[in-house]
Nucleic acid binder design. Structure first.
Lengths: 200, 200
DNA sequence: GTCTATAGAACGATAGAC
DNA sequence: GTCTATCGTTCTATAGAC
């Protein structure tokens, strides 16, 4: 009984994740989720009361990918440059395995009726980076730039290509695997920019 | 008669633009467009046969903002660095007046049923930039980087903050005007990065 | 050209049998 | 726990009066 229960719930969550990531909240259909899970609509509402409920569940499960946990990285006493280089590699590798996440998160928080979802984002990450920058800047280890703008730039260079993925795939005539390779190469390219910007 | 005709059509287009930009295709409602235009739904279908038709009209009108016309800029015989600096200023100024455009375009071309809209984008721009880079690189005017990756980076740094606008506004506690100011300041910051990256 | 009224389909959600 | 059947609503689109 309980075994079967968990199995169905797991199937629903997997299907919901796939459909919501592909279509976003508004365009996603409960029927599509039911079909993909191999069950019917009524059972969806038995496990999760409403579409809103199910979506919130998936969203909260996925935001950690958009703003990854970085605690251990900040506790290693690395420089701002080293920490940011490590972040770039970790972030793009993570997004290469979850290419739909940036569009999913951004389309959600841009909906007029879902702006409260912004508060679910773990945005303390930005503050940590800024503190580390000022620490290195005060001892002359990095060139003077605006740290908030720099962090926005790094996240932009990592995340935006996944949002513009269909365009980039079309321009470069790349398939999914080739796009992954482009992004893999991009890690060292962004790290190179950072090196020049910070004068390392 | 014809005067009235044009006036109504203009009101519809203005309303449709506003609603589609805010909600995207899937979440936009013909009723909302009709209400905003001060007419009824039936009249919408009299002027534009379907929602698809109306949307396509608006989309084609707006893509020039996402990929701005740059012909005159390329004909001024400026260096790659100068041209890209000018692009950054022009692009962010343009997006500051049209902050919803990046999300609108990206959410459209990420829809499974709207991928043919990618072909409407004037992506020749990228090629022009790459050619100009190689011209300057061959005479040692710029440092060696991957030009395609650099152009993606510049566009990312310009466009992504508008897509993440609700997040940035929340983190910085900025209103619409303050966000505009942040982006205005961002122009010189991105230009500074470019200077360091290209060793100018 | 503009309106009211409504058709026809799709969607989220629920009732009730098993 | 899982199903079929259906309710109530919402949406695009059209018919028909003026």
């Amino acid at each position: 009984m309980k075994q079967q229960n968990s199995q169905t719930e797991e199937k629903i969550l997997e299907a919901a994740e796939q459909i919501f990531l592909r279509d976003g909240y508004g365009d996603a259909r409960m029927q599509d989720i039911a079909d993909l899970a191999g069950i019917n609509k009524a059972l969806l509402h038995y496990y999760f009361r409403s579409k809103d409920n199910l979506f919130e569940y998936i969203f909260e499960k996925k935001i950690s990918v958009m703003f990854p946990k970085m605690e251990e990285m900040f506790n290693q006493n690395l420089s701002f440059y080293e920490t940011t280089c490590a972040f770039i590699e970790k972030y793009i590798t993570l997004l290469n395995d979850n290419p739909y996440i940036p569009m999913f998160v951004m389309s959600t928080i841009n909906r007029a009726d879902r702006q409260d979802f912004i508060k679910k984002l773990p945005i303390g990450l930005i503050q940590k980076f800024a503190e580390l920058y000022f620490k290195d800047f005060s001892v002359g280890k990095v060139r003077e730039v605006n740290p908030a703008q720099l962090i926005i730039s790094v996240m932009s260079m990592c995340a935006f290509p996944f949002i513009a993925r269909p365009v980039i795939k079309e321009i470069t005539k790349a398939d999914d695997e080739q796009f992954k390779a482009i992004m893999q190469f991009r890690i060292s390219e962004i790290q190179l920019y950072l090196k020049y910007i910070l004068n390392q």
